[in-house]
Design a protein around this nucleic acid. Structure first.
Length: 816
DNA sequence: TGTGCTTCATTTTTT
DNA sequence: ATGAAGCACA
């Protein structure tokens, strides 16, 4: 033990922790009970709840952090406090987040508090990055080499397809994507093929699911690869089967912290529990009300059960909200109180009441986009920034209407979480080259690029290579002597059972090598393959001497990839070249190819360009953790939000998760939240009449303004039976027509005759008027409404270029 | 190997 | 509506 201490202190003195050590010294001289009192000044600036969370350093701790209660601050301060109080060493703290962004942010903020940490906090990262790091050192325990590849979802699906095909199952009826999803969900629950419950085993292809899963795992092992789920699964396996390994981590890691605990799945829970077993110093931070990832395996139960799972856990509630004004917070709280399964918190703020939450009904999606765009323009004219506005939708398709409107009005916008850099084909191609140079086992990488750029090695040739790879080895004697087995180095003579029961005796590269000296392949393909193989060998050779950045440049150049893009006249080719430049540049930040690929497999999010002056367009999911002064929440309609599928598939559980999503949405707002819903909506090109979301009924009337400025008679939340019958003389909206076809409304649409009372008028001139006890709507083109004689309204209806006056209404004084 | 036509699905998304 | 993916055919 002594030598260990000596080593540690030398290590500490040798690197950039000097100022941290000074902090340590001052506290370390105190008895443990007094250390908290002598805490550094940053702890003093916290509110009492936060401080309690920060200072509970030992034993299990559950921090229930409501939206906007300073969760990140608590987390980072706690980590800093842990270090500066001397309670834990930088290499003894395991701090887990879900996203790379979150872990990056945490690292930065801790460094800000404690000064630059140099190589400190090696165990701060995502579940996956930490697991990958661990697995690299224990790969052999699960039958992998330590240079294993981490497959991206695309490779994963490709592999699934191959397996499904090989098993003689119709890939069209049972798509690889579905199998991937199924296996993923099993892995989320830490189920190995043997452990999959019998009743679920039949979920795919009439009972082949589990078998395919087992084959898939075997194939991965052969390919020296694993997928994201495996990173955790393998480590759980190692921990369970090799207590000595687990113990080394127990010895190393004294304290653990987990962010967003409500989003952990079963596998992550097991992983955490195994690691926390010894020290019990596990602090989890989360908010059961913001658990919105059930569909990808998150178990709210993990957080609900924490006190039970970790007896003696200290629970700290953070309920003081620093983000939103009173009405917004009250609205969100009132809404979420409708959920049954929750630990319960009451958020409060000292801030002023601020604006009431606006709820507005509109005619259709277009009107909604117009309304919101106009609001944004108004905000801008009030000298506020576009970037302060966010439009948060339930599903990605809802963004289109807004994008169209924004483009038309020249409002700059940015889609949060748009297409990701690492998903781009060209980036993945380069990675495939690098992966193949690093490990010949990587058949998927080989397949991806063997004909990229085009070399004349087509699908047919690849088929033959596959077939050959599956043939039992035979002795080949060439001019250069006999061929050797890839792995053992022995001359290949014997027929052997392929490992894992899968049919592969050689890597595809191995097969290619052999087939370039036989005449089974057409000459053209053979020559092409041969030169491709010698390229690969040459690059591999070079990679020992040159940096990985140079390697990438050489590969891009010599493979003809760059040239291919240069010759490509399509507009995307230019972007692709730029992406590649960015890629090569970003590689420079990593010391080795290994380090880079590791990073790539797990993260590779090139920093998004700065937000600048853009309206933020996002799904509700992607907006979690963000905040904006002005938030629009459009599309609050039954079956859209709450999503029909969610409720259909998961019943009340699904509905509650949708409600949490609504809660997340509202609590993103600082100053103003504006909810809207339409009566008609185009969904996948089909018009549908839709009803206001039940969530609208659940809003507290006292904190909400129901505005009918553009709506058609929605007076207050709770009024659901508003008349949505649209009609007109001469013009019927597609939505109305469809509704009529479905028999949604009985009787004939009323016809305008005589006088009607105008209730409201859209900015674009759509008229909403009341006759008798019903409210009707008349849809018109933009800017074609004229007021005549004070309160008499004339509408010009522009149809096929021909303008004609079709109607006039008398406007009651109250609406004018 | 490359093309043009048909079919199909279409919540949310990280690693 | 829309776009991706699969498929038959040149």
């Amino acid at each position: 033990m002594l030598w260990l201490r000596a080593l540690c202190s030398r290590f500490v003195l040798g690197c950039a922790f000097t100022d941290r050590i000074e902090l340590n010294d001052s506290v370390e001289n105190l008895p443990i009970s007094q250390r908290a009192a002598a805490a550094p000044p940053y702890v003093a600036s916290l509110n009492p709840e936060q401080r309690a969370a920060v200072e509970a350093l030992d034993g299990p701790v559950l921090v229930l952090a409501g939206a906007g209660t300073g969760k990140t601050r608590v987390l980072t301060t706690r980590l800093a406090h842990l270090l500066s109080s001397g309670r834990a060493k930088p290499w003894g703290v395991l701090a887990v987040t879900f996203t790379n962004k979150a872990s990056r942010e945490m690292r930065e903020r801790v460094e800000k508090l404690l000064g630059p940490g140099g190589g400190g906090l090696p165990w701060l990262g995502t579940f996956h990055s930490i697991s990958a790091r661990m697995l690299r050192t224990h790969a052999e325990l699960v039958g992998l080499k330590n240079n294993f590849t981490i497959l991206d979802p695309d490779d994963q699906i490709r592999l699934m397809k191959q397996i499904i095909d090989a098993e003689g199952i119709d890939e069209k009826r049972w798509p690889g994507r579905q199998l991937a999803g199924l296996i993923d969900s099993w892995k989320n629950r830490a189920l190995t093929p043997e452990k999959v419950p019998k009743n679920e085993a039949f979920a795919f292809a009439d009972g082949a699911g589990v078998k395919l899963y087992a084959i898939y795992q075997a194939r991965l092992r052969i390919l020296n690869a694993c997928d994201f789920g495996d990173l955790l699964m393998h480590m759980i396996d190692v921990f369970q089967r090799h207590p000595d390994v687990l113990q080394t981590y127990h010895r190393k890691i004294s304290h653990m912290m987990v962010d967003e605990y409500q989003d952990t799945n079963v596998a992550q829970y097991l992983w955490l529990r195994l690691l926390a077993q010894a020290s019990k110093n596990l602090c989890v931070v989360g908010d059961d009300d913001q658990s919105i990832y059930g569909w990808r395996g998150a178990e709210v139960d993990n957080i609900l059960r924490f006190e039970h799972d970790f007896p003696g856990a200290k629970v700290v509630r953070l309920e003081r909200n620093y983000r939103s004004t009173g009405h917004i917070l009250a609205t969100a709280s009132h809404l979420i109180a409708n959920n049954r399964g929750r630990l319960g918190k009451t958020l409060f703020t000292d801030d002023e009441d601020g604006n009431r939450v606006k709820v507005r009904g509109v005619w259709d999606g277009e009107a909604e986009a117009r309304l919101i765009a106009d609001d944004i323009e108004q905000w801008r004219q009030g000298n506020r920034s576009y970037a302060e506005c966010a439009v948060l939708v339930r599903a990605a398709w809802q963004m289109r209407a807004f994008e169209e409107r924004f483009l038309m009005l020249r409002i700059p916008y940015k889609v949060i979480g748009g297409p990701r850099f690492f998903e781009r084909a060209e980036v993945r191609d380069v990675h495939a080259y690098l992966r193949l140079i690093r490990s010949e086992d990587d058949d998927l990488a080989f397949e991806r690029i063997v004909n990229q750029p085009k070399r004349g090695v087509g699908e047919g040739t690849v088929q033959k290579l596959h077939a050959h790879a599956g043939k039992p080895p035979v002795r080949f004697v060439t001019d250069n002597g006999p061929l050797f087995d890839e792995d053992t180095g022995e001359v290949v003579t014997e027929q052997a059972e392929a490992p894992g029961g899968a049919t592969r005796f050689r890597t595809l590269i191995g097969a290619a090598r052999e087939m370039t000296i036989t005449d089974e392949l057409p000459l053209k393909a053979r020559t092409a393959l041969r030169s491709f193989l010698s390229d690969l060998d040459r690059w591999r050779e070079k990679s020992r001497e040159i940096s990985h950045v140079e390697l990438a440049e050489i590969v891009l150049d010599e493979s003809g990839y760059t040239e291919m893009l240069r010759n490509d006249k399509s507009p995307q080719a230019q972007t692709r070249l730029e992406n590649l430049k960015e890629l090569v540049q970003s590689m420079g930040q990593y010391d080795t190819l290994e380090a880079y690929l590791e990073h790539v497999a797990l993260v590779l999010d090139i920093e998004a360009e700065s937000d600048g002056e853009n309206v933020q367009l996002s799904t509700l999911h992607a907006a979690k953790g963000l905040e904006f002064p002005l938030v629009f929440l459009p599309g609050w309609e039954e079956e859209v939000f709450p999503s029909k599928r969610s409720v259909d598939e998961n019943g009340d559980k699904g509905l509650e998760e949708e409600r949490r999503l609504a809660y997340v949405g509202i609590t993103r707002a600082r100053e103003s939240a504006r909810i809207s819903f339409a009566a008609n909506r185009q969904i996948y090109g089909r018009w549908q009449v839709v009803l206001p979301s039940r969530f609208i009924d659940e809003l507290p009337a006292a904190n909400v303004d129901a505005v009918s400025e553009t709506g058609y008679g929605m007076q207050a939340p709770g009024v659901r039976d508003m008349a949505v019958e649209p009609f007109s003389s001469g013009y019927q909206s597609p939505g109305w027509r469809r509704a009529q076809e479905r028999g949604a409304f009985k009787g004939k649409p009323p016809v305008i005759d005589g006088e009607a009372r105008l209730v409201a008028r859209s900015g674009d001139g759509d008229a909403h008027y009341r006759r008798g006890d019903r409210i009707f709507h008349q849809k018109f083109g933009y800017g074609q409404v004229r007021m005549v004689d004070g309160n008499k309204l004339t509408v010009d209806f522009d149809k096929a270029g021909e303008k004609r006056v079709i109607d006039s209404f008398v406007v009651p004084a109250s609406a004018a």
